[in-house]
């Protein structure tokens, strides 16, 4: 296990590669998903993963937690889940004759909010404070959550029955929205072989994953990423993209300033993964789809024509002038 709180950029990049390798032992394939999840972790953001059930979302989170010996909690969102079930609540202790706080499952490093769109908006919003401020207020008292903290929410595609779409305010708090797709043929064969080998039942097997970091090293990586240099022209490029979404034909709602912030934060993490101490417009472009796709709403006519937000975003990226001096 690596204990490095004052690490160099190269060390951080190497560590990130190790994290990827370790996660890859449990999660077969899905390299882009792992890459983007790591970007969100290093940027200190939260992730919304969308995909049909059974593609290894829980396994990914558990493996990620195992790589840095972090705590991991999972909340299965259901229609009758209450906000207090998520955040925690106070109980009257008869022995001490006083109120004591019972902390909810959000007090962890990695929180898997499974099928978040199965719960109504009231419960979904219980996560707003912790996602933004890394603290939970119970009975007027703020309780910080352990760091590093990341919420990984999963949701089924919105067309499915019995789902509540996430409110815009909540969506905006996710740094990235990642699409998880079916594995490729060869990856699926490997996965089936790995899961069924010497194993009864179909529980998730993360015994191969070894811890290569600690929560402290992850925090150090986050600090290092936050220190990566950003040129003014690159910030302007990110802002230009986000501003274009606001009056782009085919979009009814564009991204707010959180979109630009997310672009720069995620691009910093991306540069760090590539052992670079500065970000380039390429980083912005690469991360633009997952960082912005959930902050936009398609115009009804585009939805009717079968366009997706990714297609519109790609159109914007193809039109916005890249910086160059």
């Amino acid at each position: 296990m690596t204990e490095m709180t004052n690490m160099t950029l190269e060390q951080a990049s190497e560590l990130a590669q190790q994290l990827k390798t370790e996660i890859g032992k449990a999660v077969i394939g899905q390299k882009q998903v792992i890459h983007e999840t790591l970007i969100a972790l290093i940027a200190g953001g939260n992730v919304l993963i969308e995909g049909v059930p059974g593609l290894g979302k829980t396994l990914l989170v558990r493996a990620l937690a195992a790589t840095f010996s972090g705590q991991f909690n999972r909340i299965q969102f259901t229609p009758d889940l209450m906000p207090a079930d998520v955040t925690g609540h106070t109980l009257y202790d008869l022995d001490n004759k006083s109120f004591s706080v019972r902390k909810g499952p959000v007090f962890t490093n990695l929180l898997l909010a499974d099928e978040i769109n199965r719960a109504p908006a009231k419960t979904q919003s219980a996560l707003l404070e912790v996602m933004q401020e890394r603290q939970v207020t119970i009975e007027g008292e703020a309780h910080p959550v352990p760091l590093p903290f990341m919420t990984l929410a999963t949701q089924n595609p919105l067309e499915q029955e019995g789902t509540y779409p996430l409110p815009e305010a909540q969506l905006d708090r996710f740094l990235l929205k990642i699409y998880i797709n079916y594995p490729r043929d060869n990856e699926e064969s490997l996965m089936v072989a790995a899961v069924t080998n010497k194993q009864t039942g179909n529980q998730l097997n993360i015994s191969n994953v070894s811890a290569v970091a600690t929560p402290e090293t992850i925090q150090a990586m986050q600090a290092l990423a936050a220190d990566i240099e950003v040129d003014k022209s690159v910030i302007e490029y990110a802002v230009r993209i986000v501003q274009a979404t606001r009056d782009w034909q085919g979009l009814s709602i564009g991204s707010g300033p959180r979109g630009s912030i997310a672009l720069i934060s995620a691009a910093r993490a991306q540069a760090m993964l590539h052992a670079r101490d500065y970000i380039t417009p390429d980083d912005i472009k690469e991360i633009a789809l997952p960082a912005l796709r959930h902050r936009l709403a398609l115009a009804p006519e585009m939805e009717l024509e079968g366009y997706s937000t990714d297609q519109i975003l790609q159109g914007i990226l193809d039109k916005i002038e890249a910086p160059r001096q």
């Binding site: 380039t280 417009p281 390429d282 912005i284 472009k285 990226l317 193809d318 039109k319 002038e321 890249a322």
Partner: peptide, 9 residues
């Protein structure tokens, strides 16, 4: 080449 191309593009 297009205006929107970054160095990587």
């Amino acid at each position: 080449l297009k205006d929107s191309f970054t160095e990587g593009d």
